[in-house]
Design a protein around this nucleic acid. Sequence first.
DNA 1: CTGAAAGCGCTTACAG
DNA 2: CTGAAAGCGCTTACAG
Lengths: 344, 344
Amino acid sequence: MAGIEDVARLAGVSTATVSRALSGKDVVSDKSRAKVEAAALELGYVASHSAYTLATGRNRNIGVVMPYVDRWFFSAALEAIESTLIENGYDLTLYNLSGGEEQRGKIFNEFLLRQRVDAVLTVAVHPNEEELEQLNKMKKPIIAIGGQVHGARSLAMNDHDAGKLATEHLISLGHTRIANISGPEGSDREFNQANKRHAGYLDAMHDAGIEIRKNWLGETDYTSPGAYKVAKQMLGDPKNAPTAIFCNSDEMGFGAIMAARDLGLRVPQDVSVIGIDNHDMSDFFGLTTLDQRVREQGTFATKILLELLLDPTLESHVNVEEETDWPVDLIIRSSTARPATGVR
Amino acid sequence: MAGIEDVARLAGVSTATVSRALSGKDVVSDKSRAKVEAAALELGYVASHSAYTLATGRNRNIGVVMPYVDRWFFSAALEAIESTLIENGYDLTLYNLSGGEEQRGKIFNEFLLRQRVDAVLTVAVHPNEEELEQLNKMKKPIIAIGGQVHGARSLAMNDHDAGKLATEHLISLGHTRIANISGPEGSDREFNQANKRHAGYLDAMHDAGIEIRKNWLGETDYTSPGAYKVAKQMLGDPKNAPTAIFCNSDEMGFGAIMAARDLGLRVPQDVSVIGIDNHDMSDFFGLTTLDQRVREQGTFATKILLELLLDPTLESHVNVEEETDWPVDLIIRSSTARPATGVR
DNA sequence: CTGAAAGCGCTTACAG
DNA sequence: CTGAAAGCGCTTACAG
């Protein structure tokens, strides 16, 4: 590999001039610049990144931390983040927390401290105080999407309001027998959005003066098979079957739709189903949902981070608490409709 | 951030001793080691990575290149690769090619040449000769999964044989009216496994002496909605409807199953469906498939790469062509069965 | 077993 | 506009 010395020699200038000409952010005569560019091209010169980093303290690299990468929300966010970074000349170093506590500790106490990243973007990860402090000590800005982080910038939809809105959609259609399939409580790997969405459901029902029956409250993991099982139980109940189900996520919604079908119930004539996410498969299932535009969320957060890194006064406000509510769009498809009158 | 000098001062030794004690691969007296470790712990010292890299030429970082990250196969592979790397103290830098030719050029001609990665793992990406040569010039080993790469190590299932096996499963059940839904030809972003799987289907049919009708040959992108549309056309044909469909991927299989159901056909009584992948949702759909154990593939390839990097004689055989066939398992679920006799 | 010092390959005040 | 040189923070022959 050709080094800066080789280029300097071939161009007949000093390494300082090569550096200045190639970086473009310092004054160099047109003649020198041309010579340097020609030499660099001829030698196929690309500046060594570690030397650049050691000299400048800048990495042009962002660390992305997420609890999973093989689930839709996370991979979609990752795709958008990565594309935005590449466009801006940045690398992306991926850390996933799927390896349990030990792996998590390694990532926060070792990997992120090697000064390999200029900033950290977390997706639905809740760093604890100690972890946050580590990052703060290094003066690395952090931004979170998919959930709020205390003491840092974050960008997320309002889970409570989303749960409420989804439920209100069903109520406005005339449903009163509305169930909710919610997620597991307090997992370490994720924000507890399950409870918030569920709370929104409870509020909407309360505001509408609807009493909730016990069998309308389902809980399972965020998967289709989980929701399938729960929905079948709910819908098969001879006395208390709901006419509509609000699922905490679209993947759960798919399960509910399949459960209804397998019971011979028509969606939406017999059962309405609404989810949250706007998963890539939701259109295929005809699932009404709240679009949280996860890719845009990823792009937006990345751009904020990139701008932050350009700010020369960053030092003074590396991490400030700043919660931005990310708006959601209600997308009506073919899985929700007025309940059949008088039936069931 | 504390540097090596701070640790040396606190421990009362030279920086050389600190380096040796912490790396553990050189002889240091127990006493010195203890002092150094205590000092490092007290100061929260973590070696700067760029300095390490500049001094040693090693990055402890692997570049992973894939055409998508938000599709199941890729995100599942990524998850496995990342976990394996973290366990071994390596970072993962992600490059996705979704931004088109320009982005691809940037990645191969700039990012990968910054000497930021020790090796490259490609997933279903076919570097062209020029790209491969660049990588070779840098003496960076490359390993590919999800498709063969000429001039490098690769690990992939045999797409032709997989297509043949899937078709033979249907034939062995007694089907003769077997359709294939294949992928689009020659996409730049992927290996052309579509044609290979399709060729396997053709061979199996030929070997069994079954003549193929024109409407049994479907082609669409690798998605559920695409396959749904194609399958509906096939199954609705009053004269030539198949009794079984081999789909090039599981996601296509989901579409075919849904299409059959929407036509009032029962799976597998009226129509059998088989896919390839063993997608996370396949169990839920009851889809018979060929499991290509993508996560294991990712882990396996990563370990090969890691071992390669430990080999002191690597220089002499950085990239040699070495194609390993990755075995697949036929997983029979509830979407395939003998055709109903005499019906239709 | 240990330390002084060179060197990795850049960038950037500093001086001209 | 340009060059000589210091410096970024490590590792590792080399000598003792």
